[in-house]
């Protein structure tokens, strides 16, 4: 099986879906002539031309709303945000228009639009360029939120997102773009809302998504040496959440740790913890433990950034805590 980068997997998904459906087009900053800020759209301008791969001005609200209108008329826009931080400029279009349209039109107009780009911290890019927006967007009914951790997931999930009839928030991560993994040559689709066991284990369930899956793997290796068997559950889709898969794992391990790069208050981990308390209260041997970013804007200095973000060490500590170990 070919081993490719995460960005290449996304690129393949885009190309395949554009070949399959003429209504799919791409727009965003630097997606065409520059070949994408992270090279996700590399080569697509040459293959599909400027009518379907469109460089936009740096006006996220305008081009996001343009995507909403185009989607209402039957096109299937894929909007790239160079980073999800910039989506905050367009948040009214995403929430008031894209998310609410199907409902407030009584089911008349749906918005089949994918919005994708890098989410979360990169390497020391400071406060304004490091937002984790999954909890923001997952809060809003009408949006689907996806966050693939591997090249395999990235390709299969992006294809599912493009074919879906709803607005999809598709979160990637700068650190993941260069990561490699096996991706089959034959076509496959990963259904929206289907989680994945990234590592089987028996002692602790560790829920992680996006880059946290990579950190969770490292933490699990360390913990294995201490005799703790960690099961990593990657929900892959944040909303709708595959809570059944998480609950099934918790019923087996009796312990749950949730790690996320976002802040803790009203974070994704709160939602998982609440739902697991509802479903598995009697199964739990320890309250749910959460690992997340500190409650401060992300600072620039390397040591302060590391202090703020979740890490392999913090995940290891969280697992030890849930195991009542020091």
């Amino acid at each position: 099986m070919p081993v490719i980068e995460y960005r290449t997997a996304l690129n393949q998904a885009l190309e395949e879906e554009m070949l399959r459906d003429g209504k799919v087009f791409i727009m965003g900053e630097e997606v065409a002539e520059y070949n994408g800020a992270y090279k996700v759209t590399k080569g697509l301008l040459d293959k599909f031309g400027p009518e379907r791969v469109k460089d936009t001005p740096i006006t996220e609200s305008g081009f996001t709303g343009l995507g909403v209108g185009a989607a209402m008329m039957g096109l299937r826009p894929v909007v790239e945000y160079m980073s999800w931080n910039f989506s905050l400029v367009a948040i009214d279009q995403i929430i008031s228009n894209a998310a609410k349209m199907y409902y407030m039109t009584g089911g008349q107009f749906n918005v089949p639009m994918v919005m994708r780009g890098a989410n979360g911290a990169a390497a020391q890019v400071s406060s304004q360029h490091s937002h984790n927006l999954e909890s923001f967007y997952a809060h809003i009914p009408g949006l689907i939120v996806m966050a693939p951790a591997t090249p395999y997931d990235a390709k299969g999930m992006l294809k599912a997102a493009i074919r879906d009839n709803n607005p999809v928030i598709f979160l990637e991560n700068e650190f993941l773009y260069g990561m490699t993994g096996e991706v089959p040559e034959e076509e496959y689709i990963i259904p929206i809302g289907k989680g994945d066991i990234k590592r089987e284990g028996t002692d602790v369930t560790l829920v992680a998504h996006l880059r946290q899956v990579i950190l969770a793997q490292e933490a699990a290796d360390i913990l294995a040496k201490e005799g703790i068997s960690v099961e990593i559950v990657d929900p892959r889709t944040i909303k709708p959440l595959d809570i059944d898969l998480i609950a099934e794992s918790v019923r087996k391990t009796k312990r749950l740790v949730v790690t996320e790069e976002g802040h803790s208050f009203c974070g994704f981990g709160s939602e998982v913890a609440t739902q697991i308390h509802d479903l598995c209260f009697d199964d739990l041997d320890h309250p749910v433990v959460r690992v997340s970013q500190n409650e401060n804007p992300l600072p620039y200095a390397k040591n302060l950034e590391a202090e703020s973000l979740p890490s392999v060490e913090k995940i290891v500590a969280g697992v030890r805590k849930v195991m009542y170990r020091k």
């Binding site: 609200s61 305008g62 081009f63 996001t64 709303g65 343009l66 995507g67 909403v68 209108g69 185009a70 989607a71 209402m72 008329m73 039957g74 096109l75 279009q93 228009n97």
Partner: peptide, 9 residues
């Protein structure tokens, strides 16, 4: 922007 997108489509 929505109207602009409809015209674009």
């Amino acid at each position: 922007p929505v109207g602009t997108g409809a015209a674009f489509a």
